[in-house]
């Protein structure tokens, strides 16, 4: 332990980890609240939710689930690679994670696009005219929750971009892995939320 204190080199891995977890708790409760709204409305409109859920494409949902699960593994592996001082592997694994996240968003774009083409989007005249209150609620929740989740994917991409740049520059390395570890924690959170979104919207019909 050096006695010299460099302020610009302050590094507190445990503090960073606690901070990240506290932030994750707020995120869990944010989505948790939305899940409760979903459950209550489902309880009050079982038939409408059943009908509306049939509209969703399970194949696209399943594909996105697989993509997110694989990306969660690759970012977890990149932390291992960093600790093993395998810089090139770390970078490749991070890049794969980044690409998988982009593919997820592209799928989401097409999935939402099909819904828009069918006249299903917030405030659409078609929905007001053709659908029951319960179905409108289902699609409202669908767009808000998968949309908020997609925003988290975009935030995850930005964080991964920073981690990638810092690993390349060499300021994130085996002895200072916090940024990459926290990027990983955030990405797993995004995965965690999708693990519940997928069955609730796509599977339970």
């Amino acid at each position: 332990m050096s006695q010299v204190i460099h302020h610009d080199e302050h590094y507190d891995p445990e503090g960073s980890k606690i901070g990240m977890w506290l932030f994750i708790f707020t995120e869990l409760l944010l989505f948790g609240g939305l899940f409760i709204v979903y459950s209550v409305y489902r309880y009050m409109n079982p038939d409408a939710f059943h009908l509306a859920a049939e509209e969703l494409n399970t194949t696209v949902g399943a594909l996105n689930t697989v993509i997110l699960l694989i990306s969660s593994m690759t970012i977890a592996m990149s932390t291992t690679a960093l600790q093993k001082k395998q810089k090139a592997t770390t970078i490749v694994l991070l890049e794969i994670t980044f690409m998988l996240a982009l593919i997820f968003l592209v799928n989401k774009y097409f999935e939402w696009g099909v819904k828009f083409d069918h006249g299903i989007f917030p405030g659409s005249e078609f929905m007001k005219a053709e659908m029951s209150q319960g179905e409108v609620l289902f699609f409202g929740l669908y767009f808000v929750m998968t949309g908020l989740h997609a925003l988290h994917i975009i935030a995850g991409l930005v964080i991964m971009g920073f981690a990638l740049a810092r690993v390349q520059k060499g300021t994130v390395h085996a002895d200072r892995p916090s940024l990459l570890e926290n990027a990983g924690l955030y990405w797993h959170l995004v995965d965690l939320i999708w693990i519940f979104l997928f069955p609730l919207f796509y599977l339970i019909t």
């Binding site: 969660s72 797993h188 693990i195």
Partner: peptide
């Protein structure tokens, strides 16, 4: 989903 999320929490 709960089993899956515990795997993610505990290992990933």
């Amino acid at each position: 989903a709960s089993i899956k999320s515990s795997l993610v929490l505990v290992y990933f």
